[in-house]
Amino acid sequence: MKKIVALFVALILTLSLITAAFADAQARTLDEIKESGKLVIGVFSDKKPFGYVDEFGEYQGYDVYFARRLAEDLGVALELVSVDAPNRVEYLTSAKVDIILANFTVTPERAEVVDFALPYMKVALGVVSPDAALITSVEDLRGKTLIVSKGTTAETWFTANEPEVNLLKFDTYTETFNALLDGRGDALSTDNTEVLAWAIENPGFTVGVETLGSLDTIAPAVQKGNDTVLAYIDDEIVKLAEEQFFHADYDATLKDVYGDAVDPDNLVVEGGVIE
């Protein structure tokens, strides 16, 4: 019996030492991509309005719109892969996708593991809470329960900056909002555009904090060291500023969702330049 346990533990430790020694898999260069005729991009498939699948099975969203343009300008077909917060980076390090366009917030820790291109979106966080117990500042949240969605900027920000706040994390937006409606938390935080749009539809709730913290950015990511593809994306973003591409992207994908509650310039980043 003890032998089995010993053998087993030895097996696990050996495996982990081996996997630790793994370098990233070989990522494709821009030329290899052009030759294969296919650009593989990882996007979310259930996070409207950034990356989702519509009722006809077609990928749509702010990220997807850009993904399509990247493939088009390179002259290749686009293959979209459904990724989630826990495996976004694995897809890059194992070279299963060339680029990740999955609402990926730039943080220094993440920059150690992947290479970020120029940003194409900026995020400010908002906090929505019931009118009866309105939260008007971040300090109010300390010691209370805040609902967030896993893999979002809100989760990253609160974990890094406000350890006194108890985070209740769910996988999807729908779950987070339902949890708030059921009173499982004192407030909810995510992109302020999202909470504003939701508060309008749900009487009894108000956005008590409209922006908080510093502005975070969303950028495309490639495998660390994949310079050719990174350069291509950066060049594209700068070039597309001339036609105000990301504003068009906003109009096509986000305007209907947020309506008049949101000013596009608060969200869109053109040419990778933050104003």
Partner: peptide
């Protein structure tokens, strides 16, 4: 679904999220 295969629960999740604004109780 965590290794990119879209099976029935993931499809469900996609449908729910795509309809999040129009049908909040669709879940």
């Amino acid at each position: 679904m965590l290794i990119g295969v879209v099976e029935v629960l993931k499809v469900g999740s996609q449908i729910i999220d795509a309809a999040r604004y129009d049908a909040p109780q669709g879940a």
